[in-house]
Nucleic acid binder design. Sequence first.
DNA 1: AAGTGATCATCT
DNA 2: AGATGATCACTT
Length: 226
Amino acid sequence: MIAKPSAPQTEEELMQRAQSIAGLNLQQLAQLANVPVPDNLQRDKGWTGQLLEWHLGATAGSKPVPDFELLGIELKTIPVNRAGEPLETTYICVAPLTGCAGQTWPDSPVRIKLNRVLWVPILAERSIAVAQRIIGFPILWSPTVQEDLALQADWEELMDMIVLGQVDQITARTGEFLQIRPKAANSKVRTQGIGAHGQPIETLPRGFYLKKNFTRKILTDSALLT
DNA sequence: AAGTGATCATCT
DNA sequence: AGATGATCACTT
């Protein structure tokens, strides 16, 4: 067991730390942090992410600020198969359903969250026991101009629907790279939204997610540079 | 209730 | 098989 690592002071320090744990499995990481490894993630869905936060010295906890506040970097673990392709979509942030008229892409929570992300792939095929899943090589990413424009197009389409009172017509198919899906304890949870006639309605809380086609390109682009 | 971390499990 | 809609745990 080792003491919880302190917050990295520079990007280089963060990357060095992330690179130094690449190749280790989750059992080794859990042992260093002195935490037990769950048999499955059914009741511990955020376990891997929190384990990585511990090792890399993320500071935010569950506060609404970047994981590495000093560096303005967000940490995302992403489960991948042996080909390095994502197994799941990636949660970004809550979708604002009220008070978001007039918001623009550059100052949207989605754009801010994605400004600088440290992606840590985890070889996490379901057939591999949680303890044996392996940390991959980290990727520090910011959106390219093309990526930014593509996300903006999806975001504007989705936000237009929210503002126009069409939130209940949004499905996970809306948007090419960015999608909106439920984000709640269960399907009975309600939050306030905008109805078809501009009136307040009660609706399911939603979140923004990156589809796999988008994150797959981030991961494979980075592999080409390596 | 809303935010953090995500994966599960059912349907197509 | 893959994506969609639902769900789990914890913190503020």
